[in-house]
């Protein structure tokens, strides 16, 4: 039971990461109608910058800030140089060009940081454990991630529901022509939204640094899970992104933990573990397939 609760927290933590990644990307998809494969690269940029700055300065906070700034700037630069030219074009062009960006960024990190992964330490302050659940000490760093996710979600909620900019962004996601007609500066709005998404991706990357190996190509595995989240949640919906991110985080984590155990009830242990692992790796995608069969536009479709 305690193990289960611990896994639940792990699922929550993965869900938070996915939310940080998908909140920005779902807006980019929804508002600019552009498919951006390079979002994972911004995550990677965040992780590398955070690891490097932390290593040299010894300050985790400094690393975090540097990562957010770097990812935001790189994101806006990419928008200005490449993505801006792709709005309104065929999705295929967008796929190809942003695929080109991925190849570029992955190789660039290899040139700068080499092929060996960087390892980033957990900051001293958060290196301990906390007994949130009595009897089950849980790493405080992971709790901090969950807390950060809650703060970001609250920030986005306030931004979108109580500020003028947020309203414009939301209006853009549901009706692009309308906000152009209302005289909103779309170009600036696009760059800002892209920058915001990049910043959140950078934050996710920086926070993932101490948990995962920081290496070239690390953005892609989370990118694909992010896509799953966006498709399940409904393109352009922040609320959908939040709920789907938590669902995917839970299924991914609990699937790996529970499926082998479940199968052991029916099958010999070795077979059960093998089949369980296979099923667990597929479970998130199964979830997506089921959602799409029932609701082809996702759980919270944003209407045109």
């Amino acid at each position: 039971m305690l193990l289960f609760l611990e896994q639940l927290l792990n699922g929550l933590q993965l869900g938070v990461m996915l939310f940080l990644m998908s909140a920005g990307l779902t807006l980019v998809f929804g508002i600019m109608r552009v498919i951006n494969l390079a979002h994972g690269s911004l995550y990677m940029v965040g992780a590398y910058v955070a690891a490097t700055v932390f290593l040299h300065s010894g300050s985790f906070i400094l690393g975090l800030l540097a990562a957010i700034t770097a990812a935001g700037l790189v994101g806006m630069l990419v928008e200005l140089l490449v993505l801006r030219r792709l709005y309104g074009r065929d999705h295929l062009d967008q796929v190809l060009a942003t695929f080109g960006l991925i190849l570029f960024f992955n190789e660039l990190t290899v040139i700068i940081w080499g092929r060996q992964p960087l390892f980033m330490d957990v900051p001293d302050l958060l290196s301990g454990t906390i007994e949130v659940i009595p009897g089950a000490p849980y790493p405080s760093y992971r709790l901090a991630i969950i807390l950060a996710g809650i703060l970001v979600a609250a920030f986005l909620y306030l931004l979108f529901n109580h500020t003028r900019l947020g309203m414009q962004i939301r209006a853009g996601a549901s009706n692009r022509e309308m906000i152009a007609a209302l005289g909103v500066n779309i170009k600036l709005l696009n760059t800002l939204v892209f920058g915001l998404g990049a910043l959140l991706a950078g934050l996710a990357g920086a926070m993932a640094g101490p948990i995962l190996a920081v290496e070239s190509g690390m953005g892609e595995s989370i990118l694909i899970l992010t896509f799953v989240v966006i498709v399940i949640g409904g393109i352009g919906s922040i609320r959908g992104a939040l709920i789907a991110a938590l669902m995917v985080g839970m299924v991914e984590t609990l699937g790996g933990f529970m499926l082998p155990a479940l199968l052991r009830l029916f099958l010999p242990a070795a077979t059960a573990d093998g089949a369980g692992a296979s099923l667990a790796s597929m479970s998130v995608y199964m979830l997506m397939a089921v959602v799409l069969v029932l609701r082809p536009h996702g759980l919270f479709p944003v209407h045109d």
Partner: peptide, 12 residues
């Protein structure tokens, strides 16, 4: 699905 969703689903 079609469009963006189709791209992401085939990928997934």
């Amino acid at each position: 699905t079609r469009g963006m969703q189709f791209i992401m689903i085939t990928l997934a």
